[in-house]
């Protein structure tokens, strides 16, 4: 198994963990962390599968950089919203489905 494939498989596993966490966990901070794990998994897959015969490919790297920026922005927004929610409801979890 080439190192690239190891990266990709690890990434896929992280993605699955992340998605599971995002769906199943109820604590919002954990959900946000799960989202970040999911994102890291995707980036690993991108970088891992993006290699062509051992030489790094710049395009997926650029994509991952962009992706990280987006993920950071989304995390920031999520944290801000969760703080507001805590302020209003005193809880860091979503209220029951309306």
């Amino acid at each position: 198994m080439s190192s690239a494939l190891i990266y990709a498989c690890t990434g896929a596993a992280l993605f699955v963990f992340g998605v599971t966490g995002l769906i199943l966990l109820s604590h919002l901070l954990r959900k946000i962390l799960a989202f970040n794990i999911m994102g890291s998994g995707i980036f690993l897959v991108l970088v891992g599968l993006g290699q062509r015969s051992g030489t790094p490919d710049p395009i997926p790297q650029a994509m991952v950089l962009t992706g990280i920026v987006v993920a950071v922005a989304a995390t920031g927004l999520a944290l801000a919203l969760v703080r507001r929610l805590l302020h209003f409801t005193g809880e860091i979890r979503l209220p029951e489905e309306p």
Binding site: G11, V19, F35, I42
Partner: peptide, 29 residues
Amino acid sequence: PIAAAVRYLLVTLLGSGAYLMGVALLYGT
């Protein structure tokens, strides 16, 4: 609205995560 926004955000992040994973697989192929 804040709770609705958080729920919306999480759903939409999950959706775009799945989408990006698809992009990664396509690029890899």
